[in-house]
């Protein structure tokens, strides 16, 4: 990590840095645990881990205010934890239990929390983008000065409905921030193999939507960009695109052999660009925390994650009658 430049502004407080550290670490430990439970057969189906991308949601949540909305794809565990959803409820959904956010009926890819303004958890690549604009449409309609973060991947950025949405979002000046989490791969397809022009943040230009590219391994840079985007949206000036450059350390899902990239490539990212290590260094170098302080945090996080896993194992399966509920309102 030595010599890595930081975009940290001198005014980032110790408390903020510690909070980001804690939140990112929670996501990472949570995901590691989910991977373990998957291996034990306690989690089934598709399970897409967020490890490596933690700074994206943590940075953007730091720019959000109470009442702002968020929506994302199937790679959603990090987003839920970052917006304050209970790790127990998330983990119990992963194990398909009654105590899960969707009573076990949604699973890893489909969780929602009205309370935290988290609108899912969507399995069809790209579908969440117009939905996100729709959330923003409702906010504009109600004139309540809220913004929506619509997260999607570099792969999703090629779906046609994204561009239909860009047009309408710009036309109607919807307060939506399109967050492209560019982790450089869509399953096994490297971005250059699927994309005619590499710069995804410029893809709104034809519609008059500004965008910028952001270092997604630097939580402070993400937060700063998020604040710019939020300011524009809240001022009623319409949508904004953030192309956040990030990287997933694990396979696309638990069943991905990941032969499309080298071990070295992954290793290099982990060693040189890891977002958690970055904040850890800032904390230590700035003498905001000692090694022991950070160890204490690590222990606390581990306890939270273990408690979530325990809860997710203990919570019973949903009652059979649940098969027939929630089909109609």
């Amino acid at each position: 990590m030595a010599g890595r430049k930081s975009t940290a502004k001198s005014n980032t407080s110790k408390d903020d840095l510690l909070a980001y550290y804690r939140e990112m670490l929670l996501i990472r430990r949570f995901e590691e645990k989910a991977g373990q439970l998957y291996g034990m057969g306690l989690i089934g189906g598709f399970c897409h881990l967020y490890i490596g991308q933690e700074a994206v949601v943590v940075g953007l949540e730091a720019a959000a205010e109470e009442g702002d909305k968020r929506i994302t794809s199937y790679r959603d565990h990090g987003h839920m934890l970052a917006c304050g959803m209970d790790p127990k409820g998330v983990m119990a959904e992963l194990t398909g239990r009654e105590g899960g956010y969707s009573k076990g009926k949604g699973g890893s890819m489909h969780m929602f929390s009205k309370e935290k303004h988290f609108y899912g958890g969507h399995g069809i690549v790209g579908a969440q983008v117009p939905l996100g604009a729709g959330l923003a449409f409702a906010d504009k309609y109600k004139d309540n000065k809220r913004v929506t973060f619509a997260y999607f991947g570099d792969g999703a950025a090629n779906q046609g409905q994204v561009y239909e949405t860009f047009n309408m979002a710009a036309l109607w000046k919807l307060p939506v921030i399109f967050v492209i989490e560019n982790n450089q791969y869509a399953m096994g397809t490297a971005q250059r193999r699927s994309t005619s022009t590499p710069d995804l943040h410029t893809r709104g230009e034809a519609f008059g939507i500004s965008g910028e590219v952001v270092d997604g391994m630097d939580v402070l840079a993400v937060k700063a960009a998020g604040e710019r985007a939020v300011a524009q949206c809240r001022a009623g000036q319409g949508p904004y695109i953030l192309e956040v450059m990030t990287y997933r350390y694990r396979g696309h899902s638990m069943s991905d052999p990941a032969k499309y990239r080298t071990r070295e490539e992954v290793q290099k990212m982990r060693e040189e660009r890891d977002a958690i290590e970055h904040v850890r260094e800032l904390l230590l170098q700035g003498k905001h925390a000692s090694d022991d302080d950070l160890k204490t945090i690590d222990r606390e996080i581990k306890a939270v994650v273990n408690a979530a896993a325990e809860f997710a194992k203990e919570s019973p399966e949903p009652a059979e009658a649940e098969l027939w509920t929630d089909i109609y309102a």
């Binding site: 398909g96 076990g104 009926k105």
Partner: peptide, 11 residues
Amino acid sequence: KDVPMPYAANL
């Protein structure tokens, strides 16, 4: 059954 597919193993 006449329901969306649930995730929980038993359902």
